[in-house]
C-alpha cells in the first residue's frame, strides 16, 4: 500500500516537473514561480522524506537482514522449537515485532544506537559484496544489557522475579552493565546446519 502511494506520488511529481520545464521556456515570472513552489519545493521534499522513512522501515525487516546468505542460519534459528533459545522464544511467542526482530534485538537504544546500527549495516554490506565474511560470525562488541532492559527493565517479572533478587545488587549491576544478562540467559541463536 505504501509503495503504491509513493509510486503514484512520484508520477505526479514527474508530471508537474515536466509541465514546469515547459512553462519555463515561455516565462519565468510570477505564475511559474508559484507553480515551482509546489513542483520543486513542497512535493519533492515531502516525497523524499516519505521515501527515506519507507526505505528505513524496509531495511529494518527480518526479510532484509536474511536476504544475505551469511544470515540464513540466523534467520532459520528464529523458528527453532526450543524455548531455551532467547531468540526463538522471543520470536515465536511474539515478544518482539516479528517483522523487525533482528533490528529490535541488535540495536542499542537511543538515536546513537540507531546510527550505530546503520553504520554496522553499511559495513556488513561492504563485506558481503567486496570482502569475505568469517565462517563463524560473532558480535562486534559484547551484547549490551540496555537492549534487554529497553523492554524488560520495568517489567514486574524482572524487578520482582526470584531469579533477580540475589545478590541484592543484581538489578543495579545489570543496569550498570557490570553483570551481563547473558551470563544466565546464555542461549541465543541455535544455529542448525
Amino acid at each position: 500500500m505504501a509503495a503504491t502511494i509513493l509510486i503514484v506520488l512520484a508520477a505526479v511529481i514527474v508530471v508537474l516537473l515536466v509541465v514546469l520545464t515547459r512553462f519555463l521556456r515561455t516565462q519565468a515570472g510570477g505564475t511559474a514561480r508559484v507553480f515551482s513552489v509546489l513542483a520543486m519545493g513542497a512535493l519533492p521534499a515531502l516525497w523524499l522524506m516519505a521515501m527515506l522513512v519507507y526505505a528505513d522501515s524496509e531495511m529494518k525487516k527480518v526479510s532484509f537482514c536474511t536476504s544475505c546468505h551469511e544470515m540464513y542460519a540466523h534467520g532459520n534459528s528464529l523458528e527453532v522449537d526450543d524455548d531455551e533459545s532467547l531468540v526463538a522464544s522471543h520470536y515465536r511467542n511474539n515478544r518482539v515485532d516479528r517483522k523487525k526482530a533482528c533490528y529490535t534485538c541488535h540495536t542499542n537504544p537511543g538515536f546513537l544506537g540507531y546510527l550505530d546500527a546503520k553504520m554496522r549495516g553499511m559495513h556488513d554490506v561492504r563485506v558481503h559484496y567486496f570482502g569475505r565474511a568469517p565462517e563463524e560470525l560473532e558480535l562486534v562488541e559484547p551484547y549490551r544489557n540496555a537492549v534487554c532492559l529497553k523492554c524488560h527493565g520495568k517489567a514486574e517479572n524482572f524487578l520482582e522475579g526470584d531469579g533477580h533478587q540475589y545478590p541484592e545488587t543484581l538489578i543495579d549491576d545489570l543496569r550498570a552493565e557490570e553483570v551481563s544478562c547473558l551470563e544466565c540467559h546464555d542461549v541465543g541463536h541455535i544455529l542448525e546446519d
Binding site: 514527474v14 514546469l20 520543486m40
Partner: peptide
C-alpha cells in the same frame, strides 16, 4: 529552474 527540475526528475526516477 529548468535544470533543477530535470535534476529532481532524475532523482525521483
Amino acid at each position: 529552474l529548468r535544470r533543477g527540475a530535470l535534476s529532481q526528475v532524475a532523482g525521483v526516477f
